[in-house]
Simulated scan of single mutants.
Amino acid sequence: MPRFFIEPSQVRENRIVIQGNDVNHIKNVLRMRPGDELSLSDGRGTDYFCRILSMERDQICLSIENSWKSYVELPVKLYLFQGLPKADKMEFIIQKAVELGVYEIIPVRTKRVIVKLDEKKETKKIARWQQIAEGGAKQSGRGIIPEIKPVMGFSEALAYAGNLEGVLIPYEKAEGIEKTREMIAGLKGKKSVGIFIGPEGGFDEAEVEAAMAAGVLPVTLGKRILRTETAGLAMLSVLMFEFEEE
């Protein structure tokens, strides 16, 4: 069933009015007609099962047949602090991270980041990345659209992560896998967990030391060396499995 996101303000008693780009998609791409069914989410955790009542040139009116709290979201908010990668790797990371249940993605400018974004390019990139997050949320049936934050410096990102209940950083010098399993199991019941992932060149030693001094827990991802676009997704997969409820 086609799925779209709306703003809570579009819900009017037992009706929902869709406007903007989605109107064209519903009418001309999906070729839907009055009586057809749609799945909608207000992006705040409420889902709606709707039926098309009428279709006008610039808006579509739907009746709310049923509504419920989204059951697909994890009980923990996962924050991915991603060192800026080269080329279009960030788009891939965002798409897959959204599928794996991430709550928020924070692009981070570290010492070994190669990509340089000026203010104009950054604004366009963030807008593009947010579109990808929305597309990933629609495809995977999410109850929210994960937010892509503006690019932060490493110190700023550490300060932002200080508000979370638990933060991890994969590090090649971390203790063995059993210690990592203990740390991850110890996060059970936390409401917010962050993950710091370095860019292609990894984190500078001083950055790792600063992170650990701030209370970030070093973990291992095993004996193999993972690319930046793999490491974060591996961590999210582990945490999704650990926190997922029935």
Rank of each mutant, 00 (worst) to 15 (best):
I177F: 14
A137T: 10
G45N: 03
R12V: 13
Q139I: 11
R44P: 00
K96E: 12
V167R: 02
D42M: 02
A210Q: 15
M235Y: 08
A127H: 06
W68D: 09
I195V: 12
K77D: 11
K27Q: 15
I225V: 15
L226K: 05
G189H: 12
P8G: 00
D42T: 00
L53W: 00
F5V: 11
L117M: 11
I93Q: 04
R227V: 10
L187E: 06
V238F: 12
V113W: 04
V17S: 03
F241V: 12
F5M: 06
L100A: 06
V167L: 01
F203Q: 01
W129N: 07
P170C: 10
R51T: 15
L158A: 02
G153M: 02
D36H: 13
S41V: 10
E244W: 07
I145Y: 02
L100E: 05
G141H: 09
G135H: 00
A234D: 06
Y171G: 09
P150L: 08
D42A: 03
G186P: 14
N14S: 14
P170Y: 03
M152T: 07
V102F: 02
I148L: 05
Y48W: 06
G198V: 05
G166Y: 14
E7H: 09
A211W: 08
S237K: 06
T220W: 10
M235G: 03
K190D: 00
M235D: 03
M90P: 04
V151F: 02
I184H: 01
P199T: 05
E147R: 15
E65Q: 13
I94G: 01
G20M: 03
G166K: 03
L100Q: 08
N24H: 15
R142H: 02
E134A: 03
M212R: 08
R12G: 10
A214V: 00
M183H: 07
P8H: 01
P199H: 02
C50E: 09
G215T: 08
L236S: 03
K223T: 14
I64S: 11
P107M: 01
P107I: 00
K89D: 10
G215K: 00
K223N: 09
I106S: 01
D58R: 15
M212C: 13
M152P: 07
K111S: 14
R109C: 08
V102C: 04
I106E: 06
E7D: 11
I132H: 01
P146W: 02
A157D: 11
S63M: 13
S9M: 12
F154H: 10
E7R: 15
Q130F: 08
V113L: 08
E147I: 14
E242H: 13
S9Q: 15
A210P: 00
R128I: 15
I94E: 03
A133P: 05
E56A: 15
V76K: 01
P75V: 10
I114S: 04
D58S: 12
N14G: 08
I26L: 11
V108E: 07
I126F: 07
S41G: 10
Y103A: 04
K190N: 13
Q10L: 06
T180V: 07
E207W: 01
G83H: 05
I144R: 11
I106Q: 02
S67R: 14
G186V: 10
L40N: 02
R224C: 10
V108Y: 03
Y160V: 08
E200S: 07
R112T: 13
I26A: 04
A185I: 05
L53F: 00
P8T: 07
